[in-house]
C-alpha cells in the first residue's frame, strides 16, 4: 500500500515535470525594447512558434509611442503641451486617452487629499533647475509658483472637455503616464491573443499578463534600498510600481525630483515604496502618493481600497506593509 502510494506520487511528479517540459518546448520567448518616455520599455512574450507575435509586440510599442505623443510635456506638439498652452480659462476638447489619464489623476488627487497632484509641474521645474546647477529658489519664487498649483483648478467635463481655472496652471503626467502606457500596450497584446507577457517601463512600472511557461506567475524582486531583505512578489495579471526620492547628494544638500504639493518643497524621505494592484495606472499613481504620504497615512489611504498591496523599505531595513492584494514574500526571513 505504502509502495503503491509512492509509485502514484512518483507518477504525478513525472507527469507534472513532463507537462512543464512540454510547455517549455512548445513556447518560445520573444523580446523587444524601445526608448520611449525617457526610459526603456521592454516587452517579453512567451508564445507558440507558429504564432507570429513579433508584429504584436511592435504594435504594442507603437501604442506606447502614441501615448507618449499625447501625454508628453517635453514634446511641444503633444496634446498635453497644447492643453497646457491653451486651457487657461478656455475650455478645450482633448483626445480620449488624455482625458482618461487626467480624469484618473484627479480621482487619485481627491482620494489622497491633494498629496498626488498632476498640477505640481511648475514646482517640479523650479526645483529641477536647482538640481541641474542653478541656485536654490528663494521663498518668494517658491510662493509665486505655488499659487499656480492645485488640482481643484482643473475642471473636467465628460467626455472630453477640460478647462484650467488659473492663468498659470501646468499639468505633468510623469507620475501616471507610464502606468497608462503599459495598460494600453497590454490591451494591444491581448487583442492579438497573447496571454503570457511582461511589459516593463524602465523598472518603475511593470505589468504582467499570465505567467511564463510552467510557472504560476512572474517572479519580481522589489526595490530594496537596504540590500538585506530582497522582498519578492508573484505577479499574474497584475502590475507593480516603485517610487523613491532622488539619492541625497554626496557634495551638498540637494533637491529631489519628487515635490510635495502641500509644502511646495522636495520630499525628504529615505523610503522606497512598491505598490501592487490590478492596474498599471493605479500602481503608478499610488506609488508616488504613498511615498509622499509615508507609511502611517499611506496605510490609512489603502484601507479605502481593495486588492492593493504596498511595502515601504528604508536603507536601514525598516519595513512597513499594507496587504489587501498579492502577498509579498521575504525569502531571507524565517517564517
Amino acid at each position: 500500500m505504502r509502495c503503491a502510494k509512492r509509485q502514484m506520487t512518483a507518477l504525478i511528479i513525472f507527469l507534472l515535470i513532463s507537462s512543464l517540459v512540454q510547455s517549455s518546448d512548445t513556447t518560445r520567448l520573444i523580446y523587444k525594447k524601445k526608448y520611449v518616455m525617457g526610459t526603456v520599455f521592454e516587452i517579453v512574450v512567451y508564445d507558440r512558434p507558429s504564432h507570429d507575435v513579433s508584429d504584436a509586440i511592435e504594435k504594442a510599442l507603437d501604442e506606447i509611442t502614441r501615448i507618449d505623443d499625447l501625454l508628453s510635456n517635453y514634446k511641444a506638439d503633444s496634446a498635453l503641451s497644447k492643453l497646457n498652452r491653451s486651457a487657461h480659462f478656455h475650455t478645450q476638447t482633448v483626445p480620449p486617452d488624455l482625458y482618461r489619464a487626467i480624469d484618473r489623476s484627479v480621482q487619485l488627487s481627491k482620494l489622497s487629499g491633494g498629496k498626488f497632484d498632476i498640477s505640481v509641474a511648475p514646482l517640479v521645474n523650479l526645483w529641477k533647475a536647482a538640481l541641474s546647477g542653478d541656485s536654490m529658489p528663494s521663498p518668494s519664487q517658491q510662493q509665486e509658483v505655488r499659487d499656480c498649483v492645485g488640482y481643484k483648478k482643473i475642471e473636467l467635463n465628460p467626455p472630453d472637455q477640460i478647462t484650467f481655472h488659473s492663468n498659470c496652471l501646468q499639468l505633468d503626467l510623469g507620475a501616471i503616464g507610464k502606468g497608462y502606457a503599459v495598460e494600453r500596450a497590454a490591451d494591444i497584446l491581448e487583442s492579438f491573443g497573447i496571454h503570457n507577457a511582461l511589459i516593463n517601463a524602465g523598472g518603475s512600472t511593470i505589468l504582467a499578463i499570465g505567467a511564463p511557461p510552467g510557472q504560476a506567475a512572474w517572479l519580481v524582486h522589489l526595490r530594496d534600498p537596504s540590500r538585506k531583505i530582497d522582498p519578492q512578489v508573484m505577479l499574474r495579471d497584475e502590475s507593480i510600481s516603485t517610487s523613491e526620492q532622488t539619492a541625497p547628494s554626496l557634495l551638498g544638500s540637494t533637491a529631489g525630483h519628487i515635490v510635495d504639493p502641500e509644502t511646495g518643497k522636495p520630499l525628504k524621505t529615505e523610503f522606497a515604496v512598491s505598490v501592487i494592484a490590478k492596474r498599471g495606472i493605479i500602481t503608478d499613481g499610488l506609488s508616488t502618493t504613498l511615498l509622499l504620504l509615508g507609511p502611517t497615512k499611506g496605510k490609512l489611504l489603502l484601507r479605502q481600497m481593495t486588492d492593493v498591496s504596498a511595502i515601504w523599505i528604508s536603507p536601514a531595513a525598516q519595513i512597513e506593509t499594507a496587504i489587501s492584494g498579492p502577498q509579498i514574500v521575504f525569502p531571507g526571513k524565517s517564517s
Binding site: Y35, G38, N200, G203, S204, I206, P212, W218, R223, I240
Partner: peptide, 24 residues
C-alpha cells in the same frame, strides 16, 4: 547598447523593480 532591466535565466524572467527609470 541601451540596456533594459529584465534578466532572463532558465527560460523565466527574473525582474528587478527599480525606480531608476533612466535608461542604462
Amino acid at each position: 547598447q541601451m540596456r533594459g532591466t529584465l534578466v532572463i535565466r532558465r527560460n523565466a524572467v527574473l525582474e528587478v523593480s527599480s525606480p531608476t527609470a533612466q535608461p542604462w
